[in-house]
Design a protein around this nucleic acid. Structure first.
Lengths: 340, 340
DNA sequence: TTGAAAGCGCTAACAG
DNA sequence: CTGTTAGCGCTTTCAA
């Protein structure tokens, strides 16, 4: 049994194909009775427009390409949240999502030149990302997740990591902590100029200055033992530290375990604020107050920016989602301080 | 500047459009010189076939739809590995991957009826999955990840969980352990009749009988505290247990932490074999011997099955990837036993 | 308010 | 070995 075409529908409803097309698109006013007949025919025949034919005739594929990093060591949790947000939101706008891998260098060009996709969302953008020239040259609208150094002509979304850093420091300083350390991204990530790490660090340092507290930065490998080692390094190099901002989910478990080993209670001896997706908390030994990385929300915004661009709004803009703090009790006044 | 079409290429090369088409597809023998001229023209013009036009004319979209579960509590790590395997392999066969969400009930029908995709890969199949009727009725080839109760007319791939269970028990029994417990999926997962949990359990119990050792099953919530609680439950309900098979990655950290708290050393007092993606090991406090869930490999196989089906090989088959054991030293002879 | 018809860019007969 | 041409199913002028 052949798939029903628009011609079959037209015949069944006793109208022309263009009328069916216009009933579907709503780009023309159709009389009530006619519309009803057409819609009944569509339902009866189980008609669905052929995506390829539509793309050919309208030069719109209704597909958004999404470039996803699959390299190991990445925070899988947040990637998935993000992808989920993108796919769900795209469907709400009648678009599908095509997945490209980060290392498919030709991918961007290919989907653009073949009209496979109408727009492109690129994740995991570095400060000086190698893909930026290709993206700037692109005829398709593109949205970057992450903020490169030079955003000229580009649309970007991300968590406001600088704000997150400031918020974390304010929270800890507010509890009376005077010596803080940011346990941040691995050296490797910093070498790659991961912009979120740079911005986070800046936010922490700026707010420390503003709040009149000390703050240092210690990198950590994204592993259990990396977290343990980082805690040792913190206490070694910065004795008297009572507040920790941890921006390294994979290291958090090891860090907390090491703290327990060393007899440090959270929050009595050590206050901890983590920047992390909310779901990761379940895998931790103790409740941890977090500044949530709202992956799904960022994905949603990215798609909404795409749709706006496709509807002709031609503004390239950078949107930073502001950070919010979720208190789970891991940050409190340091021991030897009156409560308050 | 308009995108170059096949007509532009034909004109530039001084040949007909069909010749260009055949140079591209290789479905006709073309003389060396002609092929060269065409290929030069293609390169000069930066020509790319229009995906929609191609899909329309050939009734092939070169797209594989992949239905991904985004519900919380799922093992994100393995999902990502799997998706990576699918996308990478699809590209090797000149296909792109479109993502559908699990709860997009219409998704299957939509991509099929609109000829958006040529085939469908569905993840996270339950024993009596609600989508099975739709999949059986589908005109498109579909591949399931997971094995339902009734596989008639369906193609499935998965890890051989029964084999994994047997392997784990053989490994522990071989070290001389006589009392084993499988710390498995949560009650919730069992209620959903997650087939992998059922098969794993069966493998463990069968091999225990065959090896003449005792084996019990304890469920665990997929959280840190769930793992800790599970260890308590094991030692409570099954005293004398010296070997654990853990098939619940999210609980593993909590389980190991609790063991340490209770003064149980791994492997001296407690041997542990986990079924888990390899990458998760980094987040654990101690090295753990694992039976790897080869997500990427399964994804690759799924795509290869799709491609075979699209090339006319019409066999529905179930492929179980056999389990392999990676020794990291967390399973050894129980204390009070001579080595060997 | 509706219809007729000209493409959109490509593939694959059919014809040499 | 190569060219001509009829569609593939839809959108959108143009015409009524």
């Amino acid at each position: 049994m052949r798939m029903a075409t628009i011609g079959d529908v037209a015949r069944a409803a006793g109208v022309s194909v263009s009328t069916v097309s216009y009933v579907l698109s709503g780009k023309r006013t159709i009389s009530g009775p006619t519309r009803d007949r057409v819609q009944r025919a569509i339902a009866d025949l189980g008609y669905r427009p052929h995506a390829g034919a539509r793309a050919l005739a309208s030069s719109r594929s209704n597909v958004i390409a999404l470039m996803v990093p699959f390299r190991p060591g990445i925070n899988v949790q947040i990637i998935m949240q993000f992808v989920g947000g993108v796919v769900t939101t795209a469907r709400e706008h009648d678009h599908d999502v095509l997945v490209l891998t980060q290392d498919d260098a030709q991918g961007i060009d290919r989907v653009a030149a073949s009209s496979t996709a109408d727009a492109l969302i690129v994740m995991d953008i570095e400060s000086d990302d190698a893909r930026l020239p290709a993206l700037r040259a692109l005829a398709l609208p593109s949205i970057l997740i992450g903020v490169p150094d030079d955003t000229t002509g580009l649309s970007c979304v991300d968590l406001d990591f600088a704000g997150a850093g400031r918020l974390a420091v304010r929270e800890l300083a507010g509890h009376g902590h005077r010596r803080l350390v940011l346990v941040g991204a691995s050296q490797d990530r910093l070498d790659h100029r991961a912009n979120y790490a740079v911005r986070m660090r800046q936010g922490v340092l700026d707010q420390a200055t503003a709040s009149g507290v000390e703050a240092a930065v210690v990198p950590a490998e994204p592993t259990f033992s990396g977290g343990a080692a980082a805690l040792d390094a913190v206490l070694d190099a910065h004795p008297g530290t009572t507040g920790l901002v941890v921006h390294n989910e994979a290291a958090l478990g090891g860090l907390l375990a090491r703290a327990a080993e060393r007899g440090l209670r959270v929050p009595d001896d050590l206050s901890v604020v983590a920047v992390s997706p909310a779901e990761m908390a379940a895998a931790l030994p103790v409740p941890v107050s977090i500044i949530e990385v709202p992956g799904e929300r960022i994905g949603r915004i990215a798609v909404e920016m795409v749709i706006a661009r496709l509807s002709g709004e031609d503004l390239a803009e950078t949107r930073l989602v502001s950070a919010t703090f979720t208190d789970r009790g891991s940050a409190a006044a340091p021991a030897g301080t009156s409560a308050g």
